[in-house]
Simulated assay, not measured.
Amino acid sequence: MRYFKWGFFAVLALLGFAFFHYTLPQHDIVRIVGTENRRIDYGEHSIFWASPSQTALAAGSRDVFFIQTQRPNGRPMVYRNEDTGWRWPPYFKFDSSNLQAVAQDLISTKADPVWVSITHYGWRNEWISIYPNAVAIKVVSGPDATIIPWANIIILVFLVVVILFLRALWKQFRRRSIDPVLDDMEEAWDGVEDRAEGLWTRLRRRLGGK
């Protein structure tokens, strides 16, 4: 039972880590090398794409902006550029066209690089063709620029405070409401055991007397 309990909490912690790792903003230092507009079928791993409009859903496909980049180590990285609107995750992004124009203006070569920080959420996986969604682009001083994830720090600190607050409320509720009930049940059960033991003792005496 103990292994089951720890296994359950381990799976729960893993799911929580995956959820926040996918949802919280991340920052990559890259050089933009190209942009494109690609037709994407809605049914292709739709859970990892932004929810389409009713028109796109009826058509079965839609146009999606992509931003092609190179990392400082020379490895490629491709981002999609989709509006999130009012849906989850709550980035309230409505400016994918403007962001695409910014990305096109910042295209640079290896000989004369322009390094940018792309803020995004999501994962890149070549096997199932999923891409992180770019939400902001900012020019930085170079490939070694340091980006402090203030948003993540604030969100995680707030989450820890909420968890500790709820834990304190639960402990107080348990101490005031649940523990007394459990104590009463334990006392009642002890009384039942005492009466049962007394009844068994009297029964044995009577049987022994016969």
Rank of each mutant, 00 (worst) to 15 (best):
33 V>M: 07
207 L>A: 09
10 A>R: 02
122 G>F: 06
9 F>N: 09
74 G>D: 03
33 V>H: 00
45 H>L: 14
75 R>M: 11
181 V>I: 10
111 A>K: 08
73 N>G: 01
33 V>T: 09
77 M>W: 08
55 T>I: 12
150 W>R: 14
139 V>Q: 12
206 R>G: 13
126 E>H: 04
32 I>H: 05
93 K>D: 11
81 N>S: 02
204 R>I: 13
81 N>G: 07
170 W>Y: 15
40 I>H: 02
205 R>S: 14
202 R>S: 14
115 W>H: 07
87 R>M: 07
11 V>S: 01
23 T>S: 00
89 P>F: 05
180 P>A: 02
84 T>C: 05
152 N>F: 09
120 H>F: 10
147 I>M: 00
11 V>N: 02
103 A>Q: 06
125 N>H: 01
189 W>M: 15
74 G>V: 05
65 F>K: 09
73 N>V: 06
128 I>T: 08
55 T>E: 14
67 I>P: 08
35 T>P: 00
11 V>P: 06
110 K>I: 10
175 R>E: 15
161 V>C: 13
106 L>E: 05
58 A>R: 06
176 R>G: 12
169 L>G: 13
142 G>H: 06
22 Y>M: 02
30 V>K: 03
163 I>A: 12
41 D>L: 13
208 G>E: 15
125 N>T: 10
25 P>N: 05
64 V>G: 00
74 G>I: 09
93 K>M: 12
186 E>P: 00
61 S>F: 04
119 T>H: 01
203 L>H: 10
142 G>S: 02
127 W>G: 10
24 L>N: 05
16 G>H: 00
158 F>S: 15
10 A>G: 05
91 Y>S: 02
174 R>Y: 14
26 Q>P: 00
131 Y>H: 09
148 I>L: 13
43 G>V: 04
120 H>Q: 05
